[in-house]
C-alpha cells in the first residue's frame, strides 16, 4: 500500500477503486455462504451440498450466475428509470463505506478526519434506494415494504449515531484509525489499567453503546428480528417483490456488503479494529502488519456476522410499531444517557 501511495493521487485512487470493486463482491460471497450453511445446520439441514464439490462452497457463485441468466423484469406500472436505478444506489452506498474501513495500518481507502461520520452518513443513502425501489415498483406490497423500510431506517439512524457519539467522545477523534489507536492506548479515561499489559477495546467501557449500535445495525440492515421491510409472510418480499435477475442480485449483494461494512465499523469502533489488542503491530514491518491487521479485522467481523446469522435464524420478527417503540422509547434514551455518562467520566478524569 506504500507503493500505492507513492504513485500519485489519481493513479493511486484508480488503483484503489479497482481493488475495491474487485474485493467488495468477493467479501459478500463468504457471508452469503456462511448464511446458507449456518442457517441450514441450525435448522438441522445440510444446506448447499453439490455446487463446487463436497461442501457446496460454490453455491453463492452458482446463485449469482443464475441471477445473470434470468430475465430482467420491469413491471408495466413501474416508474422505469427510478426502478432500474434503485439497486445501484443501494449497492453504491454500501460500497462507498469501504473507503474509510481500515483493514490495516495503511490498508485504508482514505483516513478521513470525519471517518465515522462519513461512514454513517453515506450508508444512510441506501435508505433512499430502498424507498424509491418500493415506490417505483408499482406494487402495493412493494410500497408498504418501502415505506416500512424508510420509517425503520430513519428511526434507527438516531440510536446508531448516538451510540457512536460515546466512542467519539472517549477517543476524541472521528477518524477510524484514530479510534483504533485510542483503543490501543492501554488506558481507560486516562487511568492505566492492568499495568499496560492489555489494551481495552471500547466494547467494555462502551458496552451499552455497543449493544445499542448492534441492535440498530440489525434494524438498519433489515435483518431478523427487524426484517419487516421484506417480511416474507406478510409482504411477500417487500420492496424486492418485483425485482428479478441481475437487479435482484445487486440488491442481494448490497445487503450482504452492508452486513460486512456494518460489522467492520462495529469491529473498528468497539473491538479495536485491525489491532490484535494483545500485541503491538507497530513492531512488525509494513506488509506483515497490514496482513495480520486485515486477518484480525476479518476475524472480528466473522464473530459479529455469526452473531447476526445466529439471531436471524432463531428469532421471529417484531411488528412495525413495536420496532418504533424500541427505538424511540428505549434505545434513544439509553443512547443519550450513555453519552451523558461518558462525557461525565471524560470530564472528571
Amino acid at each position: 500500500m506504500i507503493v500505492v501511495l507513492a504513485i500519485g493521487f489519481w493513479a493511486g485512487l484508480a488503483l484503489k477503486i479497482g481493488i475495491m470493486a474487485a474485493i467488495v463482491p468477493v467479501v459478500a460471497l463468504p457471508i452469503i455462504f456462511a448464511e446458507l450453511k449456518l442457517s441450514a445446520h441450525m435448522q438441522h439441514r445440510i444446506g448447499p451440498y453439490f455446487a463446487g464439490g463436497r461442501y457446496g462452497w460454490a453455491q453463492p457463485l452458482a446463485d449469482g450466475l443464475k441471477f445473470f441468466q434470468k430475465e430482467d423484469l420491469v413491471p408495466d406500472a413501474a416508474d422505469k428509470m427510478v426502478y432500474k436505478l434503485a439497486p445501484y444506489l443501494v449497492l453504491g452506498a454500501a460500497m462507498a463505506v469501504f473507503v474509510v474501513i481500515p483493514f490495516g495500518p495503511d490498508l485504508i481507502g482514505r483516513d478521513l478526519d470525519l471517518g465515522v461520520f462519513y461512514a454513517l452518513a453515506i450508508s444512510s443513502i441506501s435508505t433512499i434506494g430502498v424507498l424509491i425501489a418500493g415506490w417505483s415498483s408499482g406494487n402495493k406490497y412493494s410500497l408498504i415494504g418501502g415505506l416500512r423500510a424508510a420509517a425503520q431506517l430513519i428511526a434507527y439512524e438516531l440510536p446508531l449515531f448516538l451510540a457512536v457519539v460515546g466512542v467519539v467522545i472517549q477517543a476524541q477523534t472521528m477518524s477510524m484509525i484514530g479510534i483504533i489507536d485510542a483503543q490501543a492506548e492501554y488506558q481507560l479515561f486516562g487511568l492505566e489499567i492492568a499495568g499496560n499489559a492489555i489494551a481495552i477495546p471500547y466494547v467494555f467501557p462502551q458496552f451499552i453503546g455497543f449493544v445499542i449500535f448492534y441492535i440498530a445495525a440489525l434494524a438498519e440492515l433489515s435483518r431478523t428480528p427487524f426484517d419487516m421491510p421484506i417480511a416474507e409472510s406478510e409482504l411477500v418480499m417487500g420492496y424486492l417483490t418485483e425485482y428479478s435477475g441481475f437487479r435482484f442480485a445487486v440488491f442481494f449483494i448490497g445487503e450482504y456488503i452492508g452486513i460486512f461494512t456494518m460489522s467492520a465499523i462495529m469491529a473498528t469502533l468497539w473491538l479495536g479494529g485491525y489491532d490484535p489488542l494483545f500485541f503491538d503491530l507497530s513492531g512488525l514491518n509494513d506488509i506483515a502488519a497490514n496482513a495480520i491487521g486485515a486477518l484480525v479485522l476479518f476475524g472480528k467481523v466473522a464473530i459479529l456476522v455469526f452473531l447476526m446469522i445466529w439471531m436471524r435464524w432463531t428469532f421471529p420478527r417484531f411488528r412495525e410499531d413495536q420496532l418504533q417503540d424500541l427505538a424511540w422509547r428505549i434505545l434513544i434514551p439509553l443512547g443519550l444517557a450513555n453519552i451523558a455518562v461518558t462525557a461525565f467520566f471524560k470530564v472528571v478524569f
Partner: peptide
Amino acid sequence: YPLEIGAATPLMHALR
C-alpha cells in the same frame, strides 16, 4: 405459525 411470525427454524425442527 412461527414462520408467519418470522422465525424460520421451528419449521424444520417440527417437520423433522
